[in-house]
Design a protein around this nucleic acid. Sequence first.
DNA 1: TAGATATTTAGATTATTTTCTAATTATCTA
DNA 2: TAGATAATTAGAAAATAATCTAAATATCTA
Lengths: 90, 90
Amino acid sequence: MNDLFKALADPTRRAILDELKKGDKNAGEIKDCFNITGASISHHMSILHNAGLVLRERQGQQIIYSLNTTVFQQLIEWIYNIKGENNENQ
Amino acid sequence: MNDLFKALADPTRRAILDELKKGDKNAGEIKDCFNITGASISHHMSILHNAGLVLRERQGQQIIYSLNTTVFQQLIEWIYNIKGENNENQ
DNA sequence: TAGATATTTAGATTATTTTCTAATTATCTA
DNA sequence: TAGATAATTAGAAAATAATCTAAATATCTA
């Protein structure tokens, strides 16, 4: 859970998730959306992957990243818990 | 929005929110729940307040903090947006 | 008003995170 | 297999964030 919050705390990583929302992208395509090096993107992707926010799949020379939305359920549960409400509609 | 994510990224701050969930607390009572100085707690409270997560009210010598859950709606909307779903039931 | 208590602010230190360059690994293709 | 391309890893530098001590501010009460 801490990994998830930490992963979402960085604005670049949230922007990466926004990009992936539009569709799957390989590491190079993600890099092209931002003004930072491939190494830094790779680091961010590793944090996102570690938090369960993205899925990775090699396709030849490239690594295709995709959004994994299932992990957001945990976050929603955390929110409803702190709000002291249940979460029956989800 | 960035302030909100940053505020939630620290485990001590999330623990503070958990404490406030049980009921309002003054700064000293919050401090007693953790093994850090009052100055550090004060710093965390300022970040939480800045993010809209807590409300502050002076009562004599003490400052009473309380959870402000309304701001979580934004977070829920962010999640539903990134999931590409709407949020009609909320 | 003086002293006590509660909390915050200032400024420094330590720890963590982000970012970089250079080197490495993996895969493809001529 | 050699060279090219894609991405990651390693290690260092720079930027942020967490924490501390000491000092300041606000309020209460004798």
